[in-house]
Write a protein that binds this DNA or RNA. Structure first.
Lengths: 255, 255
DNA sequence: TCGAATCTTCATCAAATCTTTATATCGGCG
DNA sequence: CGCCGATATAAAGATTTGATGAAGATTCGA
């Protein structure tokens, strides 16, 4: 399997190979140049069919894949690979920067995306970042947290509410990610402070309130009827992952 | 400072005991104060010999240990305990913050260290963190308390009576959780006050009556024929919980 | 170094919660 | 039956808590 090559035990000295796929040859050439300059071996493909073949036979360590390709769409290539349980990291190139495209890329299993026009330098940086992440293979952490109307992509630290990107500060993101990992669990302000700011934090615990408020405001801007973070009076906050969780004490029956 | 009402953090189950060792009595006193305020039982020692004795006889759940001690060095105490395969978690207090000291502390089997001068709050936070880390390894304590027509989800702080959620105030929840942990045991009003509000509570013990009444009203709204909290005239209250009946299928309605 | 983004603190208000007080109820007992 | 101590209940007042807006402090990158 390809992914084993790109993973944990990969020899440090052997150069990584990267498959670059785009129907625009100029782009492929430019990107190859930069990647080679950074010490990678580069394989090229110019359509989807070719890309899929090479992905399977050459077993690259990473794929840079254009979303729109002649013959076989980039998304199809991605899906086909994932369907075969091939976990090689994929960075999507999206022509337009519509949110739809970005989301589509992440949803079908891409590890990262970058929108055209992009600087080759940034692409190289992202390649490095993705590979580094795999090498460290962080404590097994869900890469994507999915709930009704909410997706959290931890590889990019991105949060999407109702298919729209939410611009969060680092603190807000960490708060949300922490709580979303254990939906329903009540976190006290002290819990949150210790795990978001560290054990040596000196400030007031009321600070959490403000961050939660800002988080709510930003998220509910995209989904006014849904409250993701619920106050538990006297004790703290919790993330509600289930869309239909009834929180009233009215006299109705639960099936 | 963190404004958590003293007593809210008191563990429902058995309080943890912590051995604090330092030759500086002022430090011991200060640390003890903070730990007690967080709901721990504290034992003190002022030299290494005493520390080792107490560690063996009192069997504390955690030790806060100064590195430099008269008589027997902290490192020696630590080593001696580990040599006897005693795995009690140890947090080292190191006077200086040289990398050497830190490493030495961790090398000889400490679980964490903190360098002087330190904030008592940070120490308490580290104590909590170490204990939490250990708890994570153990089979988690009863996450759900289940009785006939009553479920208490402690991580969610939710109480369900007859499959309906009951909206409790913090005090009501704590009262119920405390008593439900020992069904049948009679709690005097003073017992309840001390464990729910803390030892420094100033009010009347009659206050408990009111909370019990509110608790009953809310619970019996969902199950009029059942009295969960029974009065024991002249003594206090006790929780009556029958173990849950056979539940074969979740998809039935209760009428 | 400056400026923008972010974080922290603070003041205020409304709502939830807690405590006290006063009165009602209950059970046992002479 | 009426008294007594103890508990239940309702209601009023006091306190605490959380939401929120805004000001000041800090951080970070250009």
């Amino acid at each position: 399997m390809i992914s084993s090559k790109a993973g944990y035990n990969y020899p440090v000295n052997k150069p990584r190979s990267i498959l670059v796929v785009d129907d625009d040859k100029k782009i492929v050439t430019l990107v190859s140049l930069y990647l080679k300059n950074d010490g990678y071996q580069v394989i090229c493909a110019y359509d989807g069919r070719q890309a899929l073949d090479l992905a399977l036979t050459a077993e690259p360590d990473l794929i840079v894949l254009d979303l729109m390709l002649p013959g076989l769409e980039g998304t199809e290539v991605c899906r086909a690979l994932r369907a075969r349980l091939i976990k090689v990291p994929i960075i999507m190139l999206t022509a337009r920067s519509t949110e739809d495209d970005k989301l589509r890329g992440l949803d079908i299993g891409a590890d990262d995306y970058i929108t055209k026009p992009f600087s080759p330098r940034e692409l190289v940086a992202r390649v490095r970042a993705v590979l580094r992440r795999l090498d460290h293979l962080e404590p097994p952490q869900a890469e994507v947290l999915t709930f009704a109307h909410l997706k959290i992509y931890s590889s990019r630290r991105e949060v999407w509410v109702n298919n729209r990107l939410v611009n969060l500060t680092p603190t807000e993101y960490r708060l949300l990610e922490l709580m979303a990992h254990e939906p329903g669990k009540v976190f006290s302000r002290v819990d949150l402070i210790e795990r978001v700011f560290g054990l040596d934090y000196q400030g007031l615990d009321r600070t959490v309130d403000v961050h939660v408020m800002n988080l709510r405001r930003k998220m509910e801007q995209n989904h006014p009827t849904r409250r993701f973070i619920v106050t538990v009076p006297g004790h703290g906050y919790r993330f509600e992952g289930e869309p239909e969780h009834e929180v009233s004490n009215e006299n109705h029956h639960i099936s």
